[in-house]
């Protein structure tokens, strides 16, 4: 079991394995997103209050969900890298940040577009919106801290500490609608009661969330490949890969 673990953490092995993983993640992701979009935009009925306008939920909720899940992934990877000094884990954490920041921006923008017609405002400094904006700044802070060092080890360690400290914001975002009186409504799916969203509207949303998740994993696998190649630039295997010698692929 441990050999398997160490093999996984070995950059050349990961580089090869991730390549074969990517199509298995991205093609199903595309299929699920198409099915979810069809289900959400065409098959699902209009809402009793918001009419057709609620359909932005099919982008807003998956983006928001991933903005938090990517952060947790990043923090866990950074923590593993910090504790066990696994370089691949730092590479994973570093690769998460821009993707997570993009999902966060997507969640904020779709939320603003949704808020204007329904609530009557693009933006309010209320708990959910504010904590999600802090998440965006955490991603930005993480990325700029990484680029502030010349030494890769220092950059890995410092940014890992920031990623771990920032993880407290994730439960704050999730529970903000329950802990404080704000403008954003409470959770429709992730609660103990039955979901307060009709099944015909719910299934495309779940399909979209799964599709977005696989999309993230596929993009992450691609990004980590690039990251390890850059980190191991001077090593034998990376040079072989870059020269097109398929030693790694054959090994």
């Amino acid at each position: 079991m441990w050999t398997w673990f160490f093999q996984l953490a070995s950059p050349p092995h990961f580089y090869r394995m991730a390549a074969s993983l990517v199509p298995w993640l991205l093609w199903p992701a595309l299929l699920l997103i198409l099915v979810g979009a069809w289900g959400g935009l065409v098959l699902a009925p209009a809402d009793y209050q918001q009419g057709e306008g609620y359909r932005i939920i099919y982008v807003h909720v998956p983006s928001s969900y991933l903005s938090m899940m990517v952060y947790v992934t990043m923090a866990v990877a950074a923590g593993i890298g910090l504790i066990w000094r696994i370089k691949l884990a730092h590479a994973v954490a570093a690769s998460c940040a821009p993707v997570g920041a993009t999902f966060t921006a997507a969640a904020l923008i779709t939320g603003m577009l949704w808020g204007k017609p329904m609530w009557g405002t693009y933006w309010q400094w209320e708990p959910r919106l504010t904590s999600e904006l802090i998440l965006l700044f955490l991603y930005f802070g993480y990325m700029s801290l990484r680029s502030a060092f010349n030494d890769l080890n220092q950059s890995d360690r410092a940014s890992a500490v920031l990623a771990l400290a920032g993880v407290v914001n994730v439960p704050i975002i999730h529970f903000s609608v329950l802990w404080w009186a704000g403008l954003h409504q409470g959770p429709s799916i992730s609660k103990i009661d039955a979901p307060s969203i009709a099944f015909a509207m719910l299934w495309p949303l779940l399909v979209m969330i799964l599709g977005f998740t696989l999309f993230f994993l596929g993009i992450l696998a691609m990004r980590v490949r690039g990251e390890v190649l850059e980190r191991e630039f001077h090593s034998r295997w990376a040079q072989d890969v870059l020269r097109g010698v398929s030693r790694v692929e054959a090994a």
Binding site: Y48, Q50, M118, T121, S188, S196
Partner: peptide, 26 residues
């Protein structure tokens, strides 16, 4: 400034109408 705050329920209008008359569920 007046903002509308909606609840977390999403359902088709027909279901909402039935619920309003039955007085059942949410």
């Amino acid at each position: 400034e007046v903002l509308a705050k909606h609840d977390e329920n999403y359902m088709p209008p027909e279901v909402a109408a039935t619920m309003a008359t039955d007085g059942q569920g949410t």
